[in-house]
Design a protein around this nucleic acid. Sequence first.
DNA 1: GGGGAATACTAGAGCGCTCTAGTAGAGCGC
DNA 2: GCGCTCTACTAGAGCGCTCTAGTATTCCCC
Lengths: 348, 348
Amino acid sequence: MTTTPRPRRGRRPTMEDVARHVGVSRALVSLVFRDAPGAGPETRRRVLDAAEELGYRPHNAARMLARSRTRVLGVVMTPANPFHAELVEALYPQAEEAGYAVLLSALTRTRNPAEATEALLRNRCEALILLGPVAAPSEVAALARELPVVTVGRRYPGSGADAVHTREARGIRLAADHLVGLGHRAIAHIDGGNAAGSAERRRGYREAMRRHGLAEHVRVLPGDQTEASGAAAARTLLDAPGRDRPTAVIAGNDRCAIGFLDAATRGGLDVPGDVSLVGFDDIPAVAMAHVALTTVHQDAGGLARAAVRTAAARTEDPDMEPRDEVLEPELMVRDTTAEPRGQEARGG
Amino acid sequence: MTTTPRPRRGRRPTMEDVARHVGVSRALVSLVFRDAPGAGPETRRRVLDAAEELGYRPHNAARMLARSRTRVLGVVMTPANPFHAELVEALYPQAEEAGYAVLLSALTRTRNPAEATEALLRNRCEALILLGPVAAPSEVAALARELPVVTVGRRYPGSGADAVHTREARGIRLAADHLVGLGHRAIAHIDGGNAAGSAERRRGYREAMRRHGLAEHVRVLPGDQTEASGAAAARTLLDAPGRDRPTAVIAGNDRCAIGFLDAATRGGLDVPGDVSLVGFDDIPAVAMAHVALTTVHQDAGGLARAAVRTAAARTEDPDMEPRDEVLEPELMVRDTTAEPRGQEARGG
DNA sequence: GGGGAATACTAGAGCGCTCTAGTAGAGCGC
DNA sequence: GCGCTCTACTAGAGCGCTCTAGTATTCCCC
């Protein structure tokens, strides 16, 4: 286009260059770029024009170093987790509104929580937001001793970290009530292992079953919130004799439910004909796709907002009472739940 | 645990503090933390111990500012895109091996390419890796004038940016060959709009059809590589009279294919009974889930490796010949493709 | 035992910003 | 015409590192 081609080599222009070009002091240029009061409108325009002309761009490291506050929020996320994508999506506008920049650090197969947070700490984030953390309580506590930490989707009571999460147990209860309402009694739960929220969901499952007088039907299958573990659980059930087979399954999350659906369907089970299935999270894929999964909806936008607000609040006041923000889940009834076979016959 | 509780308030310890504590100079501490030669083993240990004791952690901004090179690779990614998750996953180890740190910047509904790259440039990345960029050619060209830019999954010929991508057209041809081999003739393509790779895939489709003498059957449905557009395309086909309906569809990508599968199935079409379906990317969800989508596999690890290598190479030598690294795709035949109805009858 | 090299360390000048404390000058009331 | 306030601007000291150019000290060889 009409952009002036700028020299590719050589050092980048600094504030000094812009200042000299306009004939003002460095401090004045700084004022303009920080949108601080104290510069005349005419000068402001000239500074901006000069910067544009020279291709000047503030050097973040220098800014961070000079400023007392960095106004950066460190976010640890797992790219492979679709629900984290939704949270990150919502985090940006919330952070911006609160006057913070977002610094992402990914958790991958080759990058553990310690590495991910270390990178953020070296950048002097003011607070950390950990999405669905898998770190050990002692690690989280150690972090919380250094800076404000907000865990999303999991609580670390007594760690000093604030928490923002869905009332997981209630979500599971909604699912259980729905299934019991349809006539199910043998309802199994695929566990999420040590993934965020799993403990709460497991507890919610046990409680709900007890409340419905179905304690004897409690059955927790091991898992880890991945498609693979859902599929494994399905295979376990397929191998069981029919009367030992639950008529409904509450998966640890949507990904697990997808895996279950896959393996169950391939194994010849009809969902919801032979077995009803409920997920958790309500990631976009299960709403829209083929699966039409009945699931427990988590409010990603609300979680993001609460996380940013809490991080900001604790940064302002480190001695604030520990917070535990809880958002209500919602059951999304779709096509993977129905009356159990026997019931259906009686009913029809 | 046994971690010394550190004072939460007050300024963080600096190299100066560590140096004083050990009784050496700041420069020596710097040497130790950079793993540079010139420090005795005994001193090295004492410095490390003191740092541990004081809770010292290098200040990244200061380091960046002081260093001539930042050794940071800026990566623009879209969290909502599952294929990007795979690329990011692979990018970290590759970058580390090449001696670079990774800085992520997300593209979201509220954050456009200009904002995402601006944030990275302010951090003085040495090179930019754009995953499936959607930016305008002029924008990419402007960026490439400032620093090495590698686009992944899309080429911007003449922009000055290097490209790393799959041989998209070949992938589509593999899909078309497979479908034609099964007996299909009316093969439609759901377009990916202006998403990365779409133009190549569209071209590949047209060429493949022509090569098979099926030019008259060419049918490109509008789309944009999301589930929604796949679903919309399915609805369009459902409304068409049977004889005008293609017997096979090559979707713009896997997400689009998932959407198609959803809407088609709900609309009463059997896949692959009534219509065969092929995707593109081979994201984890389509391999494992319920869908078992026949799709064109892209080598995420290979793309990541090539992207990092190219970025590093251009950083070393800005005058290097423009690179265009091409990786071969692979057709993964799963359960969504079969002989067309008529064929099947004849065959059986 | 004197010169040379290698090793272990230090001094100090930046890197490009921010921000406090200050100055110059205009406007204004009396 | 004096002091006052207000606006527009500047000087300069950091922020916490890196890195070049040094200085001691030891070791070794002839």
